[in-house]
Each structure stands twice: as C-alpha cells, then as structure tokens.
Computed example of a mutant assay.
Amino acid sequence: MRKSKVIIVAVILLILIITGYLERYGSERVAKGEKEETSELILSELHTVWPTEEWPTSTPEEQGMDSEKLVELFEYIEQNDPRQLHGLLIIRNGHIVAEKYTSPYNEKYPHNTYSVTKSLTSAIAGIAIDEGIINLNDRVLDYFPDMTFENMSEEKENMTIEQLLLMKTGIQWPEWDSEESSIQLFRVWDNSKSLLQYYLNQPIIKEQVGEWNYDTGAPYVLGAIIERASGMTLNEYGKEKIFDRIGMDSLEFYVTNEGIAHGGTYSQMTPRDMARFGYLYLHDGKWDGEQIVPKEWVKESLYPHTEFDVYDYDYGYYFYLNESENGRLFSARGAGGQWIIVVPELELIVIETGRSFERISLNEYILPAIKSESPLLANDQAYERLKELSEKQK
C-alpha cells in the first residue's frame, strides 16, 4: 500500500515538473513570437536531400521532369554555337538531372562568376550584422579613420552600409550609362593604386542619393568594411562562416593590388559550388539542419527594396527578383552569362556559365520540362539521348 502511494506521489510530482517546464519555456517561445514547427515542415526537412559530399544524380523523370524537353534544349545548344555556353547545370529536388559543358570547361573547372560575387558578399554581410560587428546604419567612412577622401560632403559623411547594399549611395558611378562608359570606368578603376580610395574619392550627386544606380564599387567597399571589422580577409571570414560549411571548396575571391578581397566581382568557383549557394538560399539559409545564414537576413535580402518599371526584375540586397507564372524566382547574375537561378516553388536551381542562354533555356525548355511534383514514367530512350548530348563537348 505504501509502495502504491509512493508511486502515485512520484507521478504527480513528475506531472507538475513537466507542466511547469512547459509553462515556463512554452510561454517564452510564444513571447518571442516563435512559430512551432508543424509535422509537415519536420517531415519535409527530413526528406530534403543535402549534397554534403557530392550532388546526387537522377533521371529527369524521377524528379518529375521530361527528358525529351531537355534533349530539345541540348540540341538547340549544339546547333547554335555551343561555345557560347561554358556550362549548364539543372538541379531539381536536390538532384542533378542534367549537366552539359563545352571544352575546356567541366564540373571541376572554377569559372569567373563576375558579379555573382555580389550575392556572396550580401550573405557574408548578413553574418557580420548578425554577429554585431557591423550594422546597417553604420556610417561607411567611420571604418576608414586613417584615410582622407576628396569631394567631401554631408551626404558622403553620412553614407551608410545599407546604402551600399541597396546601391543607393548617390556616388557618381557611370557603370551602366553605356558599354563604352563601363569599359572606361573599369579600365581606370582596376588600374588605380587603391580601388577603395578611387571609389570613395568620387563626388556624390545629392539629388541621386536614395536612387538605385548599378555600382560594383559599393560591394567592394562593403567587403573592405567587413575585413576591417572582423580582422579577417573576406575569403577567410566567408569560408569560416558560410562556404566551407556547405562544401564550396572551389570558391576563391579575387584579391586586388591593395590586398583587399573584391566583394563586387571576379570570384571563381565551379558550377556545382554555385549551385550549393543557390541551394542554401532555396532553404532560407539552412544547410543540413544548421542555420548558416540567418533566415531573417535571407528574407530581407530577397525583399524587393527597389522596384522597377523599366526592367523585368526588382532588386534586393545584391539579388535580382522576378515574378513568373511559377511564382517568384531570384538570381545572382554576372557579366558574360553567369547565373544562379532559383525557383523555390519548383525546388529548381539552374546554373549557367559563359554567354547566357538564360531566357531561352529557362522559359522555353527548362520550366516546360517540369511536369509534376511526383516521378514520371521512365523514358529510357530520351534519357540515353540526353546523356549522349551531355557528354558531347566541342
């Protein structure tokens, strides 16, 4: 009898302890506004494929795609100067379903991605802000107290990190005025003794502060700020916080003659590592159960801070944003046809290097190739033809 009473008391105490725990920590979660994960989200996370070592491969049909449509794409490439395209990689549901390169390029060849670099710098900035070493409202020139700059003004003194991310500094920078002005600008800038000094010497046009102007100098300065704030190079900081953790082993930032890693252009990596970065952002900054880039930063980076009437895209923090019949898509883009294209609703990533076939390949072939969220019946003949075209190089 006494033994039964002891057991009953123990059970009651256990219930009280559990209830108290739930009241305390459960209420804290509600107070913080955190959402409970649903069983569906947990199940989805469990079924996500993570390319921890290598990207898994699959037939298109196994991922709900039509091999015949992708054969049409590869035949189009063969018939229309294939050397314009250096590499094409199509990933759905975490599986490579098609891949094609032209010689000397292949899946292990690091490619110059040009302004895709800007999107990498955006991710690094998100980590630095989350760690508290920089802030969006920080004044840019406060990070360079040892330097003096020409054409000083109140607007230049108050230039912020967020203005760099938005490309709304008002700095006189004719990068997109014309092809001729862009070539001339980069010829002078790239050969200057200090790219940082050259950029921050430029006058600010007061009326253009707050207006978007495409500007590779802005992410260069942002990269320099992160280097000074972290005490590490952009390469070191980015790899430690993000890129090594998701297996982007081929990535290297270009280092200028003043010893600063270029946050705006010239980074090199393989197409498969470009896809890893796209996959990270497809999953809101999470990788294999670990939050690498803060989810809120990913959301903020992909928000249309600048909306255009004259272009077919909007702009976030160094990301291009589009709406399509398949929902929103976002991309990192570089000169000469370097693309990381992500279509979240379709679990689709498209990587292109070389001279871009983006509009043709994506809208006329790749998106129409998606037929279902479930596997399709096998099409061995079309898949064999697709493999044959994949292996064919010119």
Score class of each variant (00 low, 15 high):
residue 315 Y to F: 13
residue 212 W to K: 07
residue 281 Y to W: 12
residue 192 S to C: 04
residue 260 I to Q: 07
residue 242 I to E: 00
residue 248 M to L: 04
residue 265 T to L: 09
residue 317 Y to D: 08
residue 233 T to G: 13
residue 266 Y to F: 13
residue 187 R to I: 01
residue 213 N to D: 13
residue 302 L to P: 08
residue 206 K to E: 15
residue 219 P to S: 10
residue 186 F to Y: 14
residue 249 D to R: 11
residue 237 Y to R: 14
residue 182 S to C: 14
residue 277 F to E: 00
residue 213 N to S: 15
residue 305 H to Q: 13
residue 317 Y to K: 10
residue 314 D to F: 03
residue 288 D to F: 04
residue 292 I to V: 10
residue 262 H to Y: 09
residue 212 W to Q: 13
residue 258 E to F: 13
residue 243 F to Q: 03
residue 195 L to N: 01
residue 193 K to M: 01
residue 234 L to F: 07
residue 237 Y to V: 11
residue 195 L to E: 06
residue 245 R to W: 04
residue 310 V to S: 15
residue 204 I to H: 07
residue 194 S to M: 06
residue 274 M to T: 11
residue 305 H to C: 11
residue 295 K to Y: 08
residue 212 W to Y: 15
residue 290 E to N: 08
residue 198 Y to R: 00
residue 259 G to Y: 07
residue 216 T to G: 14
residue 236 E to D: 15
residue 197 Q to P: 09
residue 323 E to W: 11
residue 283 H to G: 06
residue 250 S to C: 05
residue 322 N to E: 15
residue 274 M to F: 06
residue 226 I to T: 08
residue 264 G to P: 10
residue 270 T to N: 03
residue 263 G to C: 09
residue 204 I to W: 02
residue 189 W to F: 15
residue 221 V to W: 05
residue 254 Y to F: 14
residue 208 Q to W: 12
residue 199 Y to D: 01
residue 251 L to H: 04
residue 243 F to N: 01
residue 265 T to A: 13
residue 307 E to A: 13
residue 326 N to V: 12
residue 220 Y to K: 05
residue 306 T to S: 15
residue 234 L to C: 11
residue 184 Q to N: 15
residue 251 L to W: 03
residue 210 G to R: 04
residue 304 P to K: 04
residue 323 E to I: 03
residue 220 Y to H: 15
residue 200 L to P: 11
residue 303 Y to F: 12
residue 313 Y to N: 03
residue 296 E to Q: 15
residue 327 G to K: 06
residue 323 E to G: 14
residue 195 L to Q: 04
residue 270 T to P: 04
residue 325 E to H: 11
residue 197 Q to T: 07
residue 250 S to I: 01
residue 212 W to V: 05
residue 222 L to Y: 06
residue 232 M to W: 03
residue 215 D to I: 08
residue 185 L to V: 06
residue 315 Y to P: 11
residue 264 G to T: 03
residue 274 M to S: 08
residue 226 I to D: 07
residue 182 S to K: 09
residue 312 D to V: 10
residue 267 S to D: 01
residue 207 E to C: 11
residue 216 T to D: 13
residue 249 D to F: 04
residue 215 D to W: 02
residue 322 N to I: 12
residue 236 E to M: 09
residue 232 M to R: 13
residue 217 G to F: 05
residue 325 E to M: 11
residue 263 G to R: 05
residue 229 A to G: 14
residue 190 D to C: 05
residue 191 N to W: 03
residue 256 T to K: 05
residue 289 G to R: 10
residue 287 W to V: 00
residue 275 A to K: 02
residue 255 V to T: 15
residue 241 K to I: 02
residue 286 K to V: 02
residue 218 A to F: 01
residue 221 V to D: 07
residue 205 I to D: 07
residue 211 E to G: 10
residue 295 K to H: 09
residue 244 D to S: 14
residue 315 Y to W: 12
residue 264 G to Q: 06
residue 204 I to M: 02
residue 246 I to G: 02
residue 248 M to G: 00
residue 284 D to A: 13
residue 240 E to W: 02
residue 184 Q to W: 11
residue 197 Q to F: 01
residue 233 T to I: 06
residue 196 L to W: 03
residue 301 S to C: 14
residue 291 Q to T: 05
residue 262 H to A: 08
residue 277 F to A: 08
residue 279 Y to S: 02
residue 262 H to I: 06
residue 190 D to L: 08
residue 190 D to K: 09
residue 187 R to S: 10
residue 305 H to L: 12
residue 243 F to W: 08
residue 205 I to F: 10
